[in-house]
Nucleic acid binder design. Structure first.
Length: 603
RNA sequence: GGCCUCGUAGCUCAGCUGGACAGAGCGACGCUUUCCUAAAGCGUGGGUCGGAGGUUCGAGUCCUCUCGAGGCCGCCA
């Protein structure tokens, strides 16, 4: 057991080990909350601690030396070595707080420990200065050659800058979108689409073998409503004006359009059907139309799934029944009030839940458990769900189910994203699927473009309510954060084009030791943190940190560009700066690719 | 009744898992282009991090309580 403690509902970012929903509580029994069973632990993408996932290139020049000196001081090798990027300028290139964290175990004053560590670090040729500040911070300044080496290392990665092999040999299934075929995707679906696809991309960039899956249900009550709604419109269009429209039916314009298509192209087939088969005919026509619509929209966002999983197959293949049987074998189901209950309290969850209603119909959690068991049986090392906040309550039940069936719930990770509010000119834009005043994802893409849609939906932490400012999104100028990133990329491309025109070609063997300007160093330093940022974003399931990083990268490049003349500088300065610009371009291009955002070569 | 998430600058939000005087974008005001894309850069103003306690050498970050906003559950998915 790597992380002892009880699992409970928790926020995403307060606990280093997981994102989304579940984390380990550290103080047993003292907190309120929804407690789950001891022995359930937050799932982690990686075996190594999160601290190491975000190790940046620069810390490779510090950490081994710290480890050496700590070992000499008799420190437990398991003691973590916190290395940080100082927030404040003048506090060095890197800072470690390890002396303060050792004060207690070593029974010594932090500054005294710091002095011993500093003494050793000062003997390292690559370290220019070591200062002890405040209560025991150790601020380290590196020789500039360290940054030059980092730049050369990055350049040697060619077009793979940012790529990681941390997930090599492992498989992950990411399930997202998963909208039922009862209508076109609405604007609010966009967040699930963008977050899910970006998460899948991040896994891919971290070396995982990724399967993108879409789960749907074409057999439920909602589908019947869709069929009835279409049938009503067809009959009305065929002249039966008084044909009743179902209560809770779908009012969207697309219903009339589907009906019109049936009337136009399949009228004979429809009219030849016996009355009792017409509903099913309409339902199937609706499903086909809706899926085609959804696929078209997803394609516009460059989203392509590998697998489409039909919930109905869980019934036809007997998976649902076998879940009931398996749970019954374990004494975890019982009958009460004519319904079948899942004894969740026995598993430490707060209440038992119904899995088969007194009507004989299963509740959603039963097929959900069967579905997750199926995914785990398919052998994925990791099964990731992207859910909206309205599904938050289902997760503990599902996890309890798969755990009870003998699977490791650690293999299931969940991203819960909050709802989206659309704002235009300071006012909330209302949309509702059933009332017919829908605001479709297609319309949103029409209005602001696919790049903006994808970026806006992932630029905020998944756990926070997202305010989508349509006015800002429509701006095609400097106010729009997407263009800030794309402009940086285009600007670099422009320079490279111009350099080529002047007969200056990129020389990977150029002498980069002339790069000494603070803007140059800062840019290299930031580039050296790209890979660890990606790894962290993947591990923590926080795609917005990549967006935040790219904003910083663009800013660092613009500063460099502003202060450091590239073309026309004397060699080897020109060549070195051109190389730095090109490495930045590759990082920006890859970063935007992870987000599914285009990297234009000119704007 | 129970539970979850979120409260940080006028607005929208970051904040690297507990570190040094709290950051960015937008908005406001002022400035920079004979010069590689000004879709850029620089400066000024703006915050008792919802509130109160607590743990700690140290809290926006962890704990308790509390106020506010949104959402979920108690045989719809």
């Amino acid at each position: 057991m790597e992380y002892p403690g009880l699992l409970r509902y928790r926020g995403a970012r307060h606990d280093g080990r997981c994102t989304g929903l579940l984390s380990t509580g550290e103080t047993l029994g003292r907190r309120k909350g929804l407690w789950l069973d001891p022995g359930w632990y937050a799932a982690r993408a990686f075996d190594r601690p999160a601290k190491e996932c975000r190790r940046m290139m620069l810390s490779r020049y510090l950490e081994p030396h710290l480890r050496t000196v700590l070992t000499a001081l008799g420190v437990d090798p398991a003691h973590p070595i916190p290395i940080e990027v100082p927030r404040q300028e003048g506090h060095g290139d890197l800072t470690t707080t390890v002396a303060m964290s050792l004060a207690r175990p070593l029974q010594k004053a932090p500054r005294q420990i710091a002095e011993q560590i500093a003494e050793h670090l000062r003997t390292i040729p690559e370290i220019t200065s070591v200062e002890i500040a405040g209560p025991g911070f150790i601020n380290v300044v590196f020789d500039r050659t360290v940054f030059h080496q980092i730049l050369r290392d990055l350049d040697a990665q060619s077009d793979a800058i940012g790529r990681s092999h941390i997930g090599q040999g492992r498989t992950v299934n990411v399930e997202y979108v998963s909208a039922n075929p009862t209508g076109p995707l609405h604007a609010g679906h966009g967040r699930n689409c963008a977050v899910g696809d970006t998460v899948a991309n991040l896994y891919a960039w971290c070396g995982f073998s990724v399967t993108r899956e879409y789960y749907f249900n074409n057999a439920g009550n909602q589908m019947n409503k869709l069929g009835e709604s279409i049938l009503a419109r067809v009959m009305q269009q065929l002249g039966q004006a008084d044909w009743p429209f179902p209560d809770d039916g779908y009012h969207g314009e697309y219903i009339a359009e589907i009906a019109a298509q049936i009337v136009r192209h399949q009228r004979d087939a429809f009219e030849d059907l016996p009355a009792e088969d017409r509903h099913a005919f309409c339902r199937k026509a609706g499903e086909t139309w809706c899926f085609a619509s959804i696929q078209r929209t997803l394609e516009r966002l460059s989203i392509r799934h590998d697998e489409f999983f039909n919930e109905d197959s869980l019934y036809t293949r007997g998976n649902v029944q076998s879940v009931i049987d398996a749970l019954r074998d374990r004494g975890l189901v019982y009958e009460k009030d004519g319904a079948l209950w899942f004894a969740l309290e026995q598993l430490g969850n707060p209440q038992d839940k119904v899995i088969v209603k007194s009507s004989g119909e299963p509740t959603y959690r039963l097929p959900d458990i069967a579905y997750h068991r199926d995914k785990l049986e398919r052998g994925y090392d990791l099964v990731v769900d992207i859910f909206g906040a309205d599904h938050i309550a289902t997760i503990p039940d599902v996890l309890a189910g798969v755990q009870a069936l003998g699977f490791d719930a650690n293999r299931v990770r969940t991203v819960i994203h909050q709802m989206v509010t659309f704002i235009e000119n300071g006012e909330v834009v209302k949309f509702s699927k059933r009332s017919g005043t829908s605001f479709t994802l297609d319309e949103l893409i029409d209005e602001v473009g696919a790049d903006v849609v994808r970026f806006f939906f992932i630029m905020r932490a998944v756990g926070t309510h997202l305010e989508f400012d349509l006015s800002l999104a429509k701006e095609e100028g400097d106010k729009n954060p997407v263009f800030y990133l794309q402009y940086a990329h285009a600007r670099i491309c422009s320079i490279l084009r111009k350099a080529a025109d002047l007969g200056v070609s990129l020389d990977h063997a150029t002498d980069v030791s002339v790069l000494r300007h603070p803007r140059e160093i800062a840019l290299i330093d930031l580039l050296g943190r790209f890979q660890s940022t990606v790894e962290r974003a993947c591990d923590q399931l926080e795609p917005q940190s990549v967006a935040e990083y790219l904003r910083e990268l663009a800013a660092a490049y613009h500063l460099f560009y502003h202060d450091c003349r590239i073309l026309g500088s004397e060699e080897p300065v020109q060549g070195a700066r051109l190389l730095l610009a090109d490495v930045t371009r590759r990082a920006m291009q890859n970063g935007l690719a992870m987000l599914g955002v285009g990297a234009p070569e000119q704007m």
